[in-house]
Amino acid sequence: MIEAIFEYEFLQNSFLTGAIIGIIAPLLGVFIVVRRLSLIADALSHVTLAGIAASLFIEKKFLLFSGLNPLYMGMIFSVFGSVLIEKLRSVYKDYQELAIPIILSGGIGLGVIFISLAEGFNTDLFGYLFGSVSAVSRMDLYVILAISIIVITLIVLLYKELFLLSFDEEHATASGIAVKRIHFIFIVMVALVIAASMRVVGILLVSSLMTLPVAASIRFAKGFKQTILFSVLFGETSVLGGLILSYYLDLAPGGTIVMIAVLILIATIVIKKIYSARPA
């Protein structure tokens, strides 16, 4: 396997991409989970699907766009979806969670229409749904690398604000922080990372890579920074472990990655139970 990674460019691409996603997805995931916005990731991933389906449709129908990378259209749709969620949340002030099913079903609806317009299931699409080791191009890798640099820089620079916003939005507002702007930047970052992650993990499983490592970490971490640290560690373990296993056993990488994350989560719950049952 290790030799294969060095030998085949497509394996290099997916491993490097996976390694990057293993960091940024759980990193953003920590903020998503503590703000109880886990379902937003789901909604956005389905909007991304619509973007990809649209891109595949255009590619098929108009030869002019034959080289079009579905990643771009996925990102555009995802970011657009995130803006729409924020708009809907301000329209339904008392039912903010309504924005999520609206966007989620809208995303699927649009996606299905594009799929049917493109006359049926494209084999590519299967890879986007469940992840694929072979689909990642060098160009994808560069785009995802650029996104991750932007995301990590923004999180470091806005860490104080994002923390306060997550912990106590009212206090953030009262102390004069530009809450709306910071939140907007955050949600756009989430949209970008979801679109970036879909190649490897697949659209249907992206949100789990943002939430499961955090769910495990939050069981025992002391403090916010430690929660981030362990989330990234678990996320990275899941992605790299999942990619290696899926390559050897010829499984869908997305599913394997997520199942490793689930196993880690179960392990932390069990270990915590044993540990706290033992007298100190």
């Binding site: 109880r36 806005l158 939050i218 430690q226």
Partner: peptide, 30 residues
């Protein structure tokens, strides 16, 4: 605030981190 009593008690933040967040605006963006 009154709401301080009903915050998300599962929030993973230490006493230090919460208190330090009170400096967010004063320290300034970036």
């Amino acid at each position: 605030s009154q709401k301080a009593n009903s915050f998300n008690t599962g929030f993973p933040a230490t006493v230090y981190e919460v208190v330090a967040s009170g400096l967010t605006k004063k320290v300034g963006l970036f």
